[in-house]
Design a protein around this nucleic acid. Structure first.
Length: 321
DNA sequence: CTTAGGG
DNA sequence: CCCTAAG
């Protein structure tokens, strides 16, 4: 089945440009690994970078007024990707799994005009003066520009059913040291038909999940990451079962708490940084609600509105992953 | 496993 | 994004 495609944020594009400037084109892996850019590109693979660079190069190469009105690119000045570029200042500032929502415009308003041209899976809502990026589980909410009068608030639900299978495999196998690729592979193969080169795909997925801190790699084995951050224990006694059935019948265990565990970790990190434990509780509560809402698009719309409302009040809230 | 290029 | 050929 075709994949939804995760839209590149301007931050990611910026990081990519800076990366190419620093390492040179062709050193995709280095760029991706560089701690300078990893915070922005950790969810992209070296191949993704290559593909993106190619796309950027062609669209900037004089052709493509194809963009129509969608995909606003306030790429003022920077024409060709190869052009001089400024490294993303405060690169270290942005850390991986957490995200904040902020806003400064009192008169901001949500234009709930749902664009028809938008594909069923990626409705877009225009919001003014909000700058954020946030994602959790397999759902990504991306906000981008702060330079123009508006920004695009895109909601995309990317769910490569494989991720769920991976978590399911690991937690089912219950191997103390984690499961290696082969174990996970055979587990999945027993459940459904997989492409011939599935092993490669699986490896990529695993690597990516590790990068996203959803999984932990010990040696050659992978474990589900639930690690609690320094000091405080996981402030999340909750253990709700909010995912009836990712797949069709067949017995399987829910992998929903993985999302919440990660959210809890992120929450405690923030709290630790600000010495406000109640913030963590609040965040966890939010994360759980988000997980639930992520079930359907309608809820996402509502979620979007709530994020917007809080943001417009100047709050810095929500973090989940 | 990483790149480059075609699909 | 995915796939394949090459290094």
């Amino acid at each position: 089945m075709g994949n939804p495609k995760q839209k590149w944020t301007s931050e990611e594009e910026e990081a990519l440009r800076a990366g190419v400037a620093k390492h040179g084109t062709g050193k995709w892996k280095n760029i991706q690994r560089d701690p300078e850019f990893n915070p922005f590109l950790f969810s992209r693979s070296n191949i993704d970078l290559k593909d993106k660079w190619r796309n950027m190069s062609v669209s900037a190469g004089g052709q493509g007024p194809r963009e129509k009105s969608r995909t606003p690119k306030p790429k003022a000045g920077s024409d060709a990707p190869a052009a001089p570029l400024s490294t993303p200042q405060t690169s270290a500032a942005a850390t991986t799994a957490t995200a904040a929502v902020t806003a400064s415009a009192p008169d901001a308003s949500v234009d709930s005009t749902i664009d028809d041209s938008a594909r069923s899976c990626a409705p877009k809502y225009f919001i003014t003066n909000i700058n954020f990026s946030l994602f959790f589980g397999s759902v990504f909410l991306g906000g981008v520009f702060n330079s123009s009068d508006y920004m695009v608030f895109e909601i995309s639900t990317e769910s490569p059913r494989y991720n769920a299978l991976i978590f399911e495999a690991i937690s089912t196998l219950k191997e103390p040291n984690g499961s290696d690729v082969s174990a996970i592979l055979s587990y999945i193969e027993q459940r459904l038909e997989v492409p011939q080169n599935f092993r490669r795909l699986l490896s990529s997925r695993l690597r990516r999940l590790v990068a996203q801190e959803k999984l932990e790699k010990v040696q050659n084995c992978f474990k589900i990451k639930e690690e609690a951050v320094s000091g405080t224990q996981t402030p999340i006694p909750k253990q709700k079962d909010i995912r009836p059935r990712p797949l069709q019948s067949t017995n399987h265990i829910s992998s929903a708490d993985t999302v919440e565990a990660a959210a809890a970790a992120a929450a405690s990190q923030i709290a630790d940084a600000e010495n406000k434990s109640f913030v963590a509780a609040e965040a966890v509560k939010e994360a759980e609600r988000i997980s639930r809402m992520a079930e359907d698009t309608d809820s996402l719309l509502q979620l979007a509105k709530e994020i917007f409302e809080k943001s417009s009040q100047g709050e810095v809230v929500l973090l989940a992953y």
